[in-house]
Structures are given as structure tokens and as C-alpha cells.
Design a protein around this nucleic acid. Sequence first.
RNA 1: GGGGGUGUAGCUCAGUGGUAGAGCACCUGCCUUUUAAGCAGGGUGUCGAUGGUUCGAUCCCAUCCACCCUCACCA
Length: 534
Amino acid sequence: MKKEQNTTEQKQEQPKPSTRAENSEQIQIPLAELIKNRYEKVRKLQAKGINPYPYRYERDYHIRDVLDNFDEFEAQQTRMKLAGRVMLKRKMGKVFFADIHDSTGRIQVYVKINNVGEEQFELFNDIDLGDIIGCEGTVFVTRMGERTLNVTHFELLTKALHPLPDKHAGLQDVETRYRRRYADLIVNPDVRATFVMRTKIIQAVREFLNDQDFLEVETPILQPIYGGGNAEPFKTHHSRLDMPMYLRIADELYLKRLIIGGYEKVWEFCKDFRNEGMDRLHNPEFSMVELYWAYADYRDMAALTEELWRYVVSQVHDSYKVPYGEHEIDFEPRFRWVSMVDSIKEITNLDFLSMSYDEAKAAAKNLGVDTDELINWGKCVEAVWEAKVEPTLIQPTFITDFPKEISPLAKQHRSNDRLTERFELFIAGMEMGNAFSELNDPVDQLQRFLQQGKALEAGDTEAQPLDDDFITALSYGMPPTAGLGFGVDRMVMLLTNQHSIRDVLFFPQMKEMKEGSIPVSSILAQLISNNGDI
RNA sequence: GGGGGUGUAGCUCAGUGGUAGAGCACCUGCCUUUUAAGCAGGGUGUCGAUGGUUCGAUCCCAUCCACCCUCACCA
């Protein structure tokens, strides 16, 4: 524990005051020039008494509505007000064409000097790509066949100072897309669609569990003691109480307390935090769903898991066949249910269940598996399984009955004392869920905590500390219970055909950018301090 | 953490041991149903950062930073 504090204690750094803006040297970059051009337009408008950032706009249709009912609107010459961001602008003599986008779609607007008058026409000349405007008029179809709003009056609703990315190539640079998600969302409709899917998926999970009478609950994110999994936590500090606190790594121990308290079906949509490496499947902050179901075992949970997936897929896709990379995942047939040792036997013809530790180790070695750290039978089985079976699991498959040595949180299997009642669900090669017949013997649980405590002292930063109150809770008696946890981000990845967790998180964790682009704040600070000059 | 790759204009990308280019965007002018509008003109840049080699580095070398891929660990 002490050792861990030394390595993970976070420095109580004050937020750095924003001095870059004030101290900036003479800025001579094209971006500054572009921003200056736009800022000058702001000042020009203000000089005319026009607020470039007004308060509201009485819009009466979304663009989608207009396009869906276009013929009627055109026939009746319905007056309408639309609003959106200017994404394209073309000037042709005394006429402008522009494309505006709102959250529902895109429409072309037509600004003709005879229709809007000279003053408005001049104002539109100063409209830049990225500005947000409101337009009033009636619709018509141009010679080229494009459905268009014939503008009679428009208003600037928000002046954009920063230029948009390229109108055709869009924003490709992944780093910029993650760091400035707003810019990504403005120009990449597919990205917006992916995140709408994310919301729908989460809603579908919630609907399903609520329909099954699972009670959605909330448990602490900020915890005096963490547990429920093996992971290094984020550590923080409560000033008034002067005590260390942790961000949760799992919900398990709190949800089980609620089962002890008498709720029979509980679940939580949980943000968890793990102080570990980051890669395409891992963000330090991530979303899980955990559920606990009293009087049920892991087979009941598997049946429920399968129903849940099928429900979610049906809510967000037209078909049970879902593309993922080069594969097509079919959720319609019953998911395969195969024990870990049987899945190995299918591929290698070797029955590990009948082997001793020494035999298993030798067999693993024969299969080309590195056996140096395989300290028991269970580790051998796991290593062989990971090497030979896991990569083959594309269609939904429950891998079940894990060896006891690698499943410290699961109940021993009722019919084989080398195994546990546990399954993991695999889809498209990713682990999509982990479930047990939960351990509810307080003495057994205490022994496992004590073992973990030794590992902690030995320097294992991912071991979990003894939670005395949880043992107390278990001593009141927890009914037989099945528990399931699954990563929501991965579920979203699978159902949106995304291959990095960063593409399903609006704001993935990024390292601090120490060098590189000059912040807009510096450019603006210089502009306002120099009265508009650079 | 190991290995590989990338970093040049607001965006998308070329390129070179003699301080740099294209398209889009931007600026100026022309054009009243255009549409990747067009036509004429304009390059607006600490070439990721810091050192080194060199007469001279954006380019070669070293270190560092960020991002991507991959392996190991984890949801």
C-alpha cells in the first residue's frame, strides 16, 4: 500500500493560469489573418448596431421537414424560417447560393439582391463558411433541379471566427478529430450518426433491463475503498475529511450490497476508471453495465444476455446480421455455449480436463505456447485457449466453465471442482461480457481478500484491498446470485462497425499537447489588445 | 513498455542539403437559378520541439513530444 502511494500519488498541481494568451509574441500565421478578417466583420456589424451574437431565432421548421413536404410547401408558397450553419457559399454576380445545415439535414438557400435588398445583400457578402444564420422565405426548385429556399430576409445568428476544414476532404487527421470533436462533428455526418447510434444502443439496453424488472440504481463513483475487479485505481483526496478517495474500478461490491438488502434485480450504467494503459480497446474512463440477479445462476444469466443482445440489435439495425470489418455477425441463431476445455478439444483434439498440471504444461509446450509463467493447471488451459481458440471466435459464443485458478470471483462449478460457473461472451474476437454464479460465502470471500492483500503488499498495484464492510454485508447473507458485466463502449463499437474505442467516445482521453498550434485565444487576445490589428 | 509508421499553409496533401509547392479555404475584381459554379489576379508558412553535422538543414544524425498501427496487460 505504501509502495503504491509513492508511485501513484498525484501532485496537487494548481491549474496553470492561462498566460499564453497574454504573453504571446507577434503572431504572423495565416490562421491569424483568417481570424482577423472575420473579427473585422464582427466589428463592422457592431458599428452598425447589429449584434453578431443575438439571443434567439423563431425558427419554424427543421430542414428535414421542409424536404419531406417540399411539394406542398412549394405549391402553397409557405413562408418559413430555417436556421443552420453555412457550409458552402457561391457568389454569382448579384446572387448568392449557400448551403445551410441543421441537425436534420442540408438545404440550399438563394439570396438575390432584388429579393433581399441592397443592404441585406451586402450583409450576406460578409457571411463566412461556418457562420450560423436564420433565413426566411419560400421554397422553389432551381433549373438544375435543386430544392432551394428563396430568401427574403436573413439574420446572422452566430459569427464563426475559426475557418472550417476543407469542404470536400473534411477533417481527416484523427488527432485533430479527437481533440476538436466539435469540428469533426460539424463536417463529418457519419461521426454524428455513430454517436446517435451510441445513444440508441444505451437506450435499448435500458429499455430491455427495465422491461425485465431490473431496477436501475446509482452507487458511488467516489469511494473510500475500491474493489470488484483487479485494476489500479485513480486516487484522489477529500480536503475537508483529509482522507484518500478512489474513483471506482467496478460496481460489483456495491450492487451486491443491494442484493443483500433485498432487491432481487439491480443494474447500473456505470462510468468506471482504471489507471492503466490506453489502446484501441481501452480508455481510462469507460462505460460498463453491471447487473445482479438473485436466485439465478450463470446459465440463467447467459439466456438473459442473449436476449439482451438480440433486443438491442433489433432496436438499432434492420437485420440480425451486423457487419463488423470483414465479418458479418449473425445474432439470430442461438449463441454457441461451449466450455473452455471442450473448445480446446475441438481444435487440438486434446482433453485438458483429464490432464494433470504436468501433463497440461507439457501439452501446452507441444502446441508452441510459452509455458514459463504457467504456474498451475488453470493457467495452462487459459494460455492454450487464448492461443488456439480465442482468435477463432467471431460469431457470438459463450465460453464457459473457466478453471478455478483464473476465476477468483466465481463460485466453484457444482459438478467439477477444478472449474467455476463462469462465462465470457465473445463476439468478433472481443470479450463482450463476463458473468458468474457469484461467490456468496463470506469466509471464502475473506480468504480471497486476504490473498489479494498479500499481492498488494508485494507490489501488485492491481490487487484489491480488503473491504471489511463488504465482508460484513456478506455475513448477513446474500442469496444465490448471478452477475454480469459488459463494456458498453465495445458493444457500441461492434454495432457501429468502429474499430477504436476513441471513435465511440465523444471526448477520448488524450495526452496534453505541449507544442504545436498557436491557440485561438492567443490570436484573439492580440486582436483585442491591438484594437483589431495584428 | 517493445517494434513499425506519421508530423509541411485553416483543411487535404506533394516536395527538396541552397530557408517550400498544389487543390480547397482566404483576399481583390467580373458574373442575377449556381452547384466540387466559372474567369482574372494575390501565398498568407517558427516544414512537431530541441540539439548536432554542414559554408548552409524542412530534408542527414541524436534526443524529446504528439498521433496511428502492432505485440505484451487490462473491459
